[in-house]
Design a protein around this nucleic acid. Structure first.
Lengths: 212, 212
DNA sequence: TCTACTAATATTGGATACAATCATGATTTC
DNA sequence: GAAATCATGATTGTATCCAATATTAGTAGA
């Protein structure tokens, strides 16, 4: 076997459903019936249920026993909570990454940034968004911290999509990312920290102002 | 139907396995074979797999495709990460709760505290622990924030058990909790905040010192 | 003896059939 | 006529069987 990219059907289905949600095809509140979905995605109900369960843990889907699953309807305070947490945790990750400057490697970050500028599909944009941030935080080597931050980013992605913000401000976001990457390259820790915070505050603000 | 306590077999199995892990019956690294477990718990493999998956999302179990699941072996920095995050997020929740003082209700907190003092089983102790903290944070009404904090508490529970800390310091923890509750009752926001932070720092310290 | 390959076994992932639960609408009773 | 009850259909949860993958033991060849 050459490449070990063994993906399970449940994971494939989860990825597809996630895409459908993040691209707005599946609207919040919409019921997700197992049989219909399994037909649509050409998988049996067994892996489909696993997919739904993992999406529940991601916060993209809500489910109740015997009553079925539906696309999550985000509660009002969710966006504020997510960004307040990110504003506390992500600078921490970046700071820790700077302390392992021997491991710093910005190639992946730049790749994600380049790819993002050519991408317009919301689900892929949000994935590349995280790839970029993750590339910067990774040298910190703090797996547990990064796992939590990743969850918060995933949840934010849904909010961004609903607010049509991820497609509305890609250039602005890209510019902020470039500034952030440059500061990291220069070893300007303080500068990078403040750019990151500002970036998160902008994103938060833009999402809020598009909600009605 | 009088009470709507409909529990699914998968959830029941998950609860049982969680108990077995938190009580130390299942040691970290130990493989969890589906067939053996399904016999032991008297459920089929289908709901058992769902249970394992949800435990994976809780961080109590690690799984790899086609290679099976095992009790999570916590990585070295995990404890530090968890408590640094809790130290940032939990005071935030408490502070928000104070701002909704009309909703403050300490009955549940006291009940959890009383029950904890009579309890010696680690899995139940950690559950009551969370019940107490949750009762204090709940008036904040910040569901997303509280969900994240709950995850961090759940993950901490495993670490505490491994460090034999949850059974070693219950009286100390209970005393700290009583002080915290009293400060909240008195409306002493600043005092409560500092007691909470201190409480978390103590817990962190006690876990660290028991690891080898 | 060691390595590479193959076969046999064990274990997990998936498909399908069945049981339990919920939702809807008709029917009965007052 | 309204409310409660029951029956029917729809939907989810569970059990069991089959397929795919990994692991191990064994064998052949150098």
């Amino acid at each position: 076997m050459i490449s070990d990219t063994n993906i399970t059907q449940a994971e494939a289905a989860a990825a597809q459903i996630r895409t459908l949600i993040l691209n707005g095809t599946f609207q919040p509140g919409q019921p997700l019936r197992q049989e219909a979905l399994s037909e649509q995605l050409n998988v049996s109900r067994t892996p489909l249920r696993h997919a739904l369960q993992s999406l529940v843990e991601d916060g993209l889907v809500e489910a109740t026993d015997y009553k079925g699953a539906r696309v999550a309807a985000l509660d009002p305070g969710m966006v504020d909570d997510l960004f307040e947490m990110r504003l506390l945790l992500e600078p921490l990750a970046l700071k820790s990454a700077f302390q392992h400057h021997t491991k710093l490697d910005f190639a992946k970050a730049e790749m994600a940034l380049d790819a993002a500028e050519a991408e317009r599909q919301p689900s892929k944009l949000s994935a590349l968004n995280w790839d970029f941030h993750h590339a910067l935080y990774r040298p910190s080597n703090r797996q547990t911290l990064l796992k939590t931050i990743e969850q918060l980013n995933r949840a934010s992605a849904l909010a961004e999509v609903i607010a049509s913000s991820i497609v509305a401000r890609p250039e602005k976001s890209a510019a902020e990312h470039r500034k952030l990457l440059q500061a990291c390259r220069n070893g300007d820790e303080a500068g990078a920290m403040s750019i990151l915070s500002e970036h998160l505050r902008f994103a938060h603000h833009d999402i809020r102002n598009r909600e009605e």
